[in-house]
Nucleic acid binder design. Structure first.
Lengths: 173, 173
DNA sequence: GTAAGAAGTAAGTGATTACTCACTTTTTCA
DNA sequence: TGAAAAAGTGAGTAATCACTTACTTCTTAC
Protein backbone atom coordinates (compact mmCIF):
# COMPACT_ATOMS: atom_id res chain seq x y z
CA UNK A 1 0.00 0.00 0.00
CA UNK A 2 1.65 3.17 -1.29
CA UNK A 3 1.40 6.47 0.54
CA UNK A 4 -0.62 7.88 -2.36
CA UNK A 5 -2.92 4.85 -2.34
CA UNK A 6 -3.72 5.56 1.30
CA UNK A 7 -4.26 9.23 0.55
CA UNK A 8 -6.76 8.26 -2.14
CA UNK A 9 -8.63 5.86 0.17
CA UNK A 10 -8.81 8.42 2.97
CA UNK A 11 -9.97 11.23 0.68
CA UNK A 12 -12.55 9.00 -0.97
CA UNK A 13 -13.85 7.76 2.38
CA UNK A 14 -14.34 11.30 3.67
CA UNK A 15 -16.00 12.55 0.49
CA UNK A 16 -18.24 9.50 0.08
CA UNK A 17 -19.31 9.84 3.73
CA UNK A 18 -19.98 13.58 3.50
CA UNK A 19 -21.59 13.93 0.08
CA UNK A 20 -22.58 10.40 -0.85
CA UNK A 21 -21.02 7.94 -3.27
CA UNK A 22 -22.95 8.96 -6.38
CA UNK A 23 -22.49 12.68 -5.75
CA UNK A 24 -18.70 12.39 -5.39
CA UNK A 25 -16.68 12.54 -8.61
CA UNK A 26 -13.32 10.83 -9.08
CA UNK A 27 -11.99 14.26 -9.97
CA UNK A 28 -12.88 15.56 -6.48
CA UNK A 29 -11.26 12.53 -4.86
CA UNK A 30 -8.05 13.03 -6.84
CA UNK A 31 -7.89 16.74 -5.96
CA UNK A 32 -8.50 16.10 -2.25
CA UNK A 33 -5.85 13.35 -2.23
CA UNK A 34 -3.38 15.56 -4.12
CA UNK A 35 -2.99 13.00 -6.87
CA UNK A 36 -3.64 12.70 -10.59
CA UNK A 37 -7.07 11.31 -11.46
CA UNK A 38 -5.58 8.50 -13.56
CA UNK A 39 -3.86 7.04 -10.52
CA UNK A 40 -7.21 6.16 -8.97
CA UNK A 41 -7.96 3.90 -11.93
CA UNK A 42 -4.48 2.38 -12.01
CA UNK A 43 -4.85 1.24 -8.39
CA UNK A 44 -8.58 0.58 -8.06
CA UNK A 45 -9.73 -0.18 -11.63
CA UNK A 46 -12.89 1.96 -11.43
CA UNK A 47 -15.05 3.97 -9.03
CA UNK A 48 -16.78 0.85 -7.69
CA UNK A 49 -13.40 -0.75 -7.07
CA UNK A 50 -12.42 2.26 -5.00
CA UNK A 51 -15.57 1.89 -2.90
CA UNK A 52 -14.98 -1.83 -2.44
CA UNK A 53 -11.42 -1.24 -1.23
CA UNK A 54 -12.74 1.18 1.38
CA UNK A 55 -15.39 -1.29 2.53
CA UNK A 56 -12.96 -4.20 2.71
CA UNK A 57 -10.55 -2.16 4.79
CA UNK A 58 -13.39 -1.27 7.13
CA UNK A 59 -14.60 -4.84 7.47
CA UNK A 60 -11.16 -5.95 8.54
CA UNK A 61 -11.17 -3.34 11.28
CA UNK A 62 -14.59 -4.59 12.45
CA UNK A 63 -13.58 -8.22 12.78
CA UNK A 64 -12.00 -7.49 16.16
CA UNK A 65 -15.22 -6.01 17.50
CA UNK A 66 -17.14 -9.24 16.87
CA UNK A 67 -14.40 -11.32 18.39
CA UNK A 68 -14.60 -9.31 21.59
CA UNK A 69 -18.31 -10.13 21.89
CA UNK A 70 -17.87 -13.87 21.48
CA UNK A 71 -15.43 -14.05 24.37
CA UNK A 72 -18.07 -12.93 26.89
CA UNK A 73 -19.64 -15.70 29.00
CA UNK A 74 -22.33 -13.93 31.01
CA UNK A 75 -25.37 -13.29 28.74
CA UNK A 76 -26.05 -10.02 30.57
CA UNK A 77 -22.56 -8.85 29.62
CA UNK A 78 -23.30 -9.67 25.99
CA UNK A 79 -26.50 -7.63 25.94
CA UNK A 80 -24.96 -4.71 27.80
CA UNK A 81 -21.98 -4.69 25.45
CA UNK A 82 -24.14 -4.78 22.33
CA UNK A 83 -26.25 -1.87 23.55
CA UNK A 84 -23.07 0.08 24.17
CA UNK A 85 -21.73 -0.45 20.64
CA UNK A 86 -23.11 2.76 19.10
CA UNK A 87 -21.68 4.78 21.98
CA UNK A 88 -18.20 3.42 21.34
CA UNK A 89 -17.84 4.86 17.85
CA UNK A 90 -14.71 7.00 17.82
CA UNK A 91 -14.56 10.30 15.93
CA UNK A 92 -12.09 8.87 13.43
CA UNK A 93 -14.46 5.98 12.69
CA UNK A 94 -17.43 8.23 11.98
CA UNK A 95 -16.84 8.65 8.22
CA UNK A 96 -16.68 4.89 7.74
CA UNK A 97 -19.93 4.29 9.59
CA UNK A 98 -21.63 7.22 7.88
CA UNK A 99 -20.68 5.63 4.58
CA UNK A 100 -21.96 2.19 5.61
CA UNK A 101 -25.32 3.56 6.75
CA UNK A 102 -25.78 5.79 3.71
CA UNK A 103 -25.07 2.87 1.38
CA UNK A 104 -28.07 1.00 2.80
CA UNK A 105 -30.19 3.26 0.61
CA UNK A 106 -28.20 2.63 -2.54
CA UNK A 107 -29.41 -0.91 -3.09
CA UNK A 108 -26.87 -2.58 -5.28
CA UNK A 109 -23.78 -2.03 -3.15
CA UNK A 110 -24.81 -2.73 0.41
CA UNK A 111 -23.97 -5.95 2.23
CA UNK A 112 -26.86 -6.61 4.59
CA UNK A 113 -25.23 -9.66 6.21
CA UNK A 114 -22.74 -7.46 8.03
CA UNK A 115 -24.56 -7.37 11.34
CA UNK A 116 -25.45 -11.06 11.43
CA UNK A 117 -22.60 -12.06 13.79
CA UNK A 118 -23.92 -9.65 16.44
CA UNK A 119 -27.45 -10.99 16.16
CA UNK A 120 -26.18 -14.58 16.34
CA UNK A 121 -24.43 -13.78 19.60
CA UNK A 122 -27.51 -12.08 20.98
CA UNK A 123 -30.05 -14.88 20.45
CA UNK A 124 -28.44 -17.49 22.77
CA UNK A 125 -27.87 -14.76 25.33
CA UNK A 126 -31.61 -14.01 25.52
CA UNK A 127 -32.29 -17.72 25.46
CA UNK A 128 -30.14 -18.31 28.56
CA UNK A 129 -31.94 -15.47 30.34
CA UNK A 130 -35.27 -17.19 29.75
CA UNK A 131 -36.84 -14.66 27.40
CA UNK A 132 -39.92 -16.04 25.64
CA UNK A 133 -38.96 -14.96 22.12
CA UNK A 134 -35.15 -14.64 21.93
CA UNK A 135 -35.21 -14.15 18.16
CA UNK A 136 -37.55 -11.16 18.35
CA UNK A 137 -35.68 -9.70 21.32
CA UNK A 138 -32.41 -9.92 19.41
CA UNK A 139 -34.02 -8.28 16.39
CA UNK A 140 -35.43 -5.55 18.60
CA UNK A 141 -31.99 -4.73 19.96
CA UNK A 142 -30.54 -4.70 16.45
CA UNK A 143 -33.23 -2.24 15.38
CA UNK A 144 -32.45 -0.08 18.39
CA UNK A 145 -28.73 -0.16 17.65
CA UNK A 146 -29.27 0.90 14.07
CA UNK A 147 -31.59 3.71 15.14
CA UNK A 148 -29.16 4.92 17.74
CA UNK A 149 -26.21 4.70 15.38
CA UNK A 150 -28.09 6.94 12.95
CA UNK A 151 -28.80 9.38 15.78
CA UNK A 152 -25.14 9.50 16.77
CA UNK A 153 -23.73 9.59 13.23
CA UNK A 154 -25.97 12.52 12.35
CA UNK A 155 -25.01 14.09 15.71
CA UNK A 156 -28.59 15.08 16.42
CA UNK A 157 -28.87 14.46 20.16
CA UNK A 158 -26.57 15.69 22.87
CA UNK A 159 -28.10 13.58 25.64
CA UNK A 160 -27.03 10.18 24.32
CA UNK A 161 -26.05 9.09 27.82
CA UNK A 162 -29.55 9.35 29.26
CA UNK A 163 -30.99 7.46 26.29
CA UNK A 164 -28.52 4.70 27.06
CA UNK A 165 -29.68 4.59 30.71
CA UNK A 166 -33.31 4.37 29.66
CA UNK A 167 -32.48 1.56 27.29
CA UNK A 168 -30.42 -0.43 29.81
CA UNK A 169 -33.19 -0.16 32.41
CA UNK A 170 -35.57 -1.89 29.96
CA UNK A 171 -33.33 -4.95 30.37
CA UNK A 172 -33.08 -4.56 34.17
CA UNK A 173 -29.51 -3.26 34.24
CA UNK B 1 -51.55 20.89 -11.12
CA UNK B 2 -51.43 19.54 -14.69
CA UNK B 3 -51.62 15.84 -15.49
CA UNK B 4 -48.05 15.97 -16.80
CA UNK B 5 -46.90 17.78 -13.68
CA UNK B 6 -48.23 14.92 -11.59
CA UNK B 7 -46.60 12.37 -13.88
CA UNK B 8 -43.27 14.13 -13.39
CA UNK B 9 -43.64 14.23 -9.60
CA UNK B 10 -44.59 10.56 -9.42
CA UNK B 11 -41.78 9.43 -11.72
CA UNK B 12 -39.24 11.55 -9.85
CA UNK B 13 -40.41 10.25 -6.46
CA UNK B 14 -40.05 6.63 -7.54
CA UNK B 15 -36.64 7.14 -9.14
CA UNK B 16 -35.26 9.26 -6.30
CA UNK B 17 -36.45 6.63 -3.81
CA UNK B 18 -35.01 3.68 -5.78
CA UNK B 19 -31.71 5.04 -7.01
CA UNK B 20 -31.11 8.11 -4.86
CA UNK B 21 -31.44 11.78 -5.68
CA UNK B 22 -27.91 12.36 -6.96
CA UNK B 23 -27.89 9.19 -9.07
CA UNK B 24 -31.13 10.08 -10.85
CA UNK B 25 -30.83 12.33 -13.92
CA UNK B 26 -33.55 14.68 -15.08
CA UNK B 27 -33.36 12.82 -18.40
CA UNK B 28 -34.43 9.57 -16.68
CA UNK B 29 -37.28 11.36 -14.90
CA UNK B 30 -38.56 12.86 -18.16
CA UNK B 31 -38.43 9.49 -19.95
CA UNK B 32 -40.25 7.70 -17.11
CA UNK B 33 -42.89 10.43 -16.99
CA UNK B 34 -43.30 10.39 -20.78
CA UNK B 35 -42.52 14.07 -21.04
CA UNK B 36 -39.92 16.34 -22.61
CA UNK B 37 -37.01 17.14 -20.31
CA UNK B 38 -37.53 20.88 -20.69
CA UNK B 39 -40.96 20.65 -19.06
CA UNK B 40 -39.38 19.67 -15.75
CA UNK B 41 -37.54 22.97 -15.65
CA UNK B 42 -40.54 24.98 -16.80
CA UNK B 43 -42.58 23.71 -13.84
CA UNK B 44 -39.97 23.16 -11.14
CA UNK B 45 -37.15 25.58 -12.06
CA UNK B 46 -34.35 23.06 -11.40
CA UNK B 47 -33.63 19.60 -10.01
CA UNK B 48 -33.68 20.86 -6.40
CA UNK B 49 -37.02 22.51 -7.06
CA UNK B 50 -38.38 19.19 -8.22
CA UNK B 51 -37.20 17.53 -5.02
CA UNK B 52 -38.70 20.30 -2.89
CA UNK B 53 -42.08 19.93 -4.58
CA UNK B 54 -42.05 16.23 -3.78
CA UNK B 55 -41.16 16.90 -0.14
CA UNK B 56 -43.76 19.61 0.28
CA UNK B 57 -46.47 17.34 -1.13
CA UNK B 58 -45.39 14.65 1.33
CA UNK B 59 -45.40 16.97 4.30
CA UNK B 60 -48.97 17.98 3.57
CA UNK B 61 -50.00 14.34 3.60
CA UNK B 62 -48.25 13.84 6.97
CA UNK B 63 -50.02 16.71 8.70
CA UNK B 64 -53.05 14.49 9.26
CA UNK B 65 -50.97 11.85 11.01
CA UNK B 66 -49.78 14.32 13.67
CA UNK B 67 -53.28 15.64 14.17
CA UNK B 68 -54.53 12.14 14.92
CA UNK B 69 -51.95 11.79 17.72
CA UNK B 70 -52.87 15.06 19.42
CA UNK B 71 -56.50 14.01 19.75
CA UNK B 72 -55.63 11.08 22.06
CA UNK B 73 -56.21 11.65 25.77
CA UNK B 74 -54.87 8.50 27.45
CA UNK B 75 -51.01 8.70 27.54
CA UNK B 76 -50.84 4.94 27.04
CA UNK B 77 -52.78 5.32 23.80
CA UNK B 78 -50.29 7.93 22.64
CA UNK B 79 -47.30 5.68 23.26
CA UNK B 80 -48.94 2.64 21.70
CA UNK B 81 -49.97 4.66 18.65
CA UNK B 82 -46.46 6.08 18.17
CA UNK B 83 -44.88 2.64 18.38
CA UNK B 84 -47.32 1.45 15.74
CA UNK B 85 -46.47 4.23 13.28
CA UNK B 86 -43.81 2.30 11.31
CA UNK B 87 -46.16 -0.65 10.93
CA UNK B 88 -48.83 1.56 9.38
CA UNK B 89 -46.79 2.57 6.34
CA UNK B 90 -48.80 1.63 3.25
CA UNK B 91 -47.15 0.20 0.15
CA UNK B 92 -47.94 3.30 -1.86
CA UNK B 93 -46.25 5.47 0.79
CA UNK B 94 -43.03 3.46 0.77
CA UNK B 95 -41.26 5.48 -1.97
CA UNK B 96 -41.89 8.73 -0.10
CA UNK B 97 -40.50 7.39 3.17
CA UNK B 98 -37.56 5.74 1.45
CA UNK B 99 -36.73 9.11 -0.04
CA UNK B 100 -37.06 10.90 3.31
CA UNK B 101 -34.78 8.44 5.09
CA UNK B 102 -32.18 8.36 2.31
CA UNK B 103 -32.03 12.16 2.29
CA UNK B 104 -30.89 12.14 5.92
CA UNK B 105 -27.46 11.22 4.58
CA UNK B 106 -27.35 13.98 2.03
CA UNK B 107 -26.83 16.79 4.48
CA UNK B 108 -27.92 19.95 2.73
CA UNK B 109 -31.49 18.94 1.82
CA UNK B 110 -32.88 17.17 4.87
CA UNK B 111 -35.28 18.81 7.32
CA UNK B 112 -34.50 17.31 10.72
CA UNK B 113 -37.37 19.10 12.50
CA UNK B 114 -39.91 16.85 10.80
CA UNK B 115 -40.35 14.44 13.69
CA UNK B 116 -40.50 17.10 16.41
CA UNK B 117 -44.32 17.10 16.71
CA UNK B 118 -44.28 13.39 17.56
CA UNK B 119 -41.63 13.84 20.22
CA UNK B 120 -43.51 16.80 21.70
CA UNK B 121 -46.58 14.64 22.10
CA UNK B 122 -44.58 11.83 23.65
CA UNK B 123 -42.88 13.79 26.46
CA UNK B 124 -46.04 14.81 28.38
CA UNK B 125 -47.39 11.28 27.91
CA UNK B 126 -44.39 9.79 29.73
CA UNK B 127 -44.61 12.58 32.28
CA UNK B 128 -48.20 11.68 33.13
CA UNK B 129 -47.23 8.04 33.52
CA UNK B 130 -44.60 9.00 36.13
CA UNK B 131 -41.48 8.06 34.18
CA UNK B 132 -38.35 9.51 35.78
CA UNK B 133 -36.85 10.94 32.58
CA UNK B 134 -39.67 11.62 30.08
CA UNK B 135 -37.35 13.46 27.68
CA UNK B 136 -34.98 10.50 27.41
CA UNK B 137 -37.85 8.02 27.15
CA UNK B 138 -39.37 10.01 24.29
CA UNK B 139 -36.02 10.17 22.54
CA UNK B 140 -35.58 6.42 23.00
CA UNK B 141 -38.90 5.73 21.32
CA UNK B 142 -38.03 8.08 18.47
CA UNK B 143 -34.76 6.20 17.97
CA UNK B 144 -36.64 2.91 17.97
CA UNK B 145 -39.17 4.20 15.46
CA UNK B 146 -36.44 5.37 13.10
CA UNK B 147 -34.63 2.04 13.39
CA UNK B 148 -37.79 0.09 12.76
CA UNK B 149 -38.81 2.30 9.84
CA UNK B 150 -35.44 1.56 8.24
CA UNK B 151 -36.02 -2.15 8.81
CA UNK B 152 -39.44 -2.03 7.20
CA UNK B 153 -38.49 0.30 4.32
CA UNK B 154 -35.59 -1.96 3.40
CA UNK B 155 -37.97 -4.92 3.84
CA UNK B 156 -35.36 -6.93 5.70
CA UNK B 157 -37.41 -8.70 8.36
CA UNK B 158 -40.54 -10.77 7.88
CA UNK B 159 -41.36 -11.07 11.58
CA UNK B 160 -42.13 -7.42 12.20
CA UNK B 161 -45.16 -8.37 14.28
CA UNK B 162 -43.16 -10.19 16.96
CA UNK B 163 -40.72 -7.28 17.19
CA UNK B 164 -43.69 -5.04 17.84
CA UNK B 165 -44.90 -7.33 20.64
CA UNK B 166 -41.48 -7.35 22.28
CA UNK B 167 -41.38 -3.58 22.10
CA UNK B 168 -44.87 -3.07 23.51
CA UNK B 169 -44.13 -5.40 26.43
CA UNK B 170 -41.24 -3.12 27.43
CA UNK B 171 -43.88 -0.50 28.16
CA UNK B 172 -46.18 -2.97 29.95
CA UNK B 173 -48.77 -3.27 27.15
C1' DG C 1 24.55 -0.77 -12.93
C1' DT C 2 20.92 -1.71 -15.46
C1' DA C 3 16.72 -3.48 -16.96
C1' DA C 4 12.06 -4.60 -15.96
C1' DG C 5 8.03 -3.46 -13.73
C1' DA C 6 5.41 -0.61 -10.75
C1' DA C 7 3.95 4.16 -9.60
C1' DG C 8 2.58 8.36 -11.22
C1' DT C 9 1.17 12.12 -14.59
C1' DA C 10 -1.15 15.16 -18.15
C1' DA C 11 -3.91 15.45 -21.70
C1' DG C 12 -7.02 13.54 -23.75
C1' DT C 13 -11.87 10.42 -24.96
C1' DG C 14 -17.03 10.01 -25.81
C1' DA C 15 -21.02 10.01 -23.01
C1' DT C 16 -23.90 12.20 -19.85
C1' DT C 17 -25.11 16.03 -16.90
C1' DA C 18 -28.36 20.00 -15.57
C1' DC C 19 -30.26 23.46 -17.88
C1' DT C 20 -31.72 26.97 -21.91
C1' DC C 21 -33.96 28.71 -25.86
C1' DA C 22 -36.70 29.31 -29.82
C1' DC C 23 -40.59 27.55 -31.08
C1' DT C 24 -45.48 25.26 -31.37
C1' DT C 25 -49.72 23.77 -29.20
C1' DT C 26 -53.32 24.11 -25.88
C1' DT C 27 -56.11 26.56 -22.46
C1' DT C 28 -58.30 30.43 -20.53
C1' DC C 29 -61.42 34.14 -20.49
C1' DA C 30 -63.20 38.84 -21.67
C1' DT D 1 -63.81 34.68 -31.39
C1' DG D 2 -59.48 36.03 -30.68
C1' DA D 3 -55.59 37.18 -28.22
C1' DA D 4 -52.78 36.54 -24.23
C1' DA D 5 -51.04 33.18 -21.07
C1' DA D 6 -49.79 28.74 -19.94
C1' DA D 7 -48.23 24.13 -21.28
C1' DG D 8 -45.30 21.51 -23.90
C1' DT D 9 -41.49 20.26 -27.26
C1' DG D 10 -36.90 19.25 -29.35
C1' DA D 11 -32.65 20.66 -30.38
C1' DG D 12 -29.36 22.79 -28.54
C1' DT D 13 -25.45 24.41 -24.64
C1' DA D 14 -21.13 24.28 -21.68
C1' DA D 15 -19.61 21.67 -17.97
C1' DT D 16 -18.69 17.56 -15.89
C1' DC D 17 -18.66 12.56 -15.77
C1' DA D 18 -15.92 8.01 -15.50
C1' DC D 19 -12.30 6.31 -17.75
C1' DT D 20 -8.03 5.70 -21.27
C1' DT D 21 -3.72 6.37 -23.30
C1' DA D 22 0.94 7.75 -24.14
C1' DC D 23 4.35 8.97 -21.58
C1' DT D 24 7.80 9.79 -17.56
C1' DT D 25 9.71 8.73 -12.96
C1' DC D 26 10.71 5.82 -9.23
C1' DT D 27 11.82 1.06 -7.07
C1' DT D 28 13.37 -3.22 -6.91
C1' DA D 29 16.41 -7.16 -7.60
C1' DC D 30 20.01 -9.77 -10.01
Amino acid sequence: MTEKQEKILQAALELFAEQGFAATSTNKVAKKAGVSEGLIFRHFTNKDGLLNSILQQGHEKMAGLFHELESLNDPKDVIRKVIEIPFMIKDEEMPFWRLIYSLKWQADVYDSTMSNPIKSTLIPAFSKLGYQNPEAEAQLIMVFIDGLAVEILLRKSGNAQSIKSSMLSKYNF
